[in-house]
Simulated assay, not measured.
Amino acid sequence: MIFNLFNRPSEEIQYLGTPYTQDCLDAIGVILQTQTYIEKALFLSCNQIHAYLIKSNRNTYIIRSGFSSGYSGEGPKGLASSLQLLLKHNIEVEEINISEKLMKKLIFLKN
């Protein structure tokens, strides 16, 4: 499923956030405020780097990899905050492990 999304024209996927955690948290907040129905949230993991794919009834969003795990710092704290925020809005989150190649694609794609 996830790979089919990357075969579509780029206008169908909106890339939000930066490699900085707060920008990614802000992007999730904007989605939650502007979208009336979130169909699914996929938590994309590669080693200790994380991103999100969020699908609403109108749009598909990629939240870039501003989240991390495995050490102390802003990345893991933001990751915990993002998960709490989504769960607080009753959005089920499913984790999917992706390849390094795909994660690098997510990191370096331009808006």
Rank of each mutant, 00 (worst) to 15 (best):
M1W: 10
M1G: 12
M1S: 14
I2Y: 10
F3D: 11
L5T: 04
F6Y: 12
F6C: 05
N7E: 14
R8K: 15
S10G: 06
E12P: 01
E12I: 05
I13R: 05
I13F: 09
I13G: 06
Q14N: 08
L16K: 13
P19M: 03
T21G: 10
T21A: 08
T21Q: 06
T21R: 10
Q22C: 08
C24I: 13
L25C: 14
L25D: 08
D26S: 15
A27C: 12
A27D: 07
G29P: 11
G29N: 15
V30S: 13
L32P: 01
L32C: 10
L32N: 07
Q33H: 14
Q35L: 07
Y37M: 08
Y37Q: 10
A41Y: 11
L42Q: 04
L42E: 04
N47E: 06
N47Q: 11
Q48S: 07
I49N: 04
I49F: 00
I49M: 05
I54G: 07
I54M: 06
K55H: 08
S56Y: 02
N57P: 00
I63D: 09
I63S: 02
R64Y: 02
S65R: 09
S65G: 11
G66A: 05
F67S: 02
S69N: 10
S69V: 08
G70M: 11
S72E: 12
G73N: 11
G73S: 14
G73K: 06
G73W: 12
G78C: 11
A80M: 05
S81L: 08
S81G: 01
S82M: 10
Q84D: 07
L85E: 03
L86G: 09
L87K: 11
K88P: 00
H89R: 06
H89D: 03
I91C: 11
E92I: 07
V93Q: 00
E94M: 06
E94T: 04
E94Y: 04
I96H: 04
N97G: 01
K101S: 04
L102M: 05
K104H: 01
K105A: 00
L109T: 14
K110S: 05
N111Q: 10
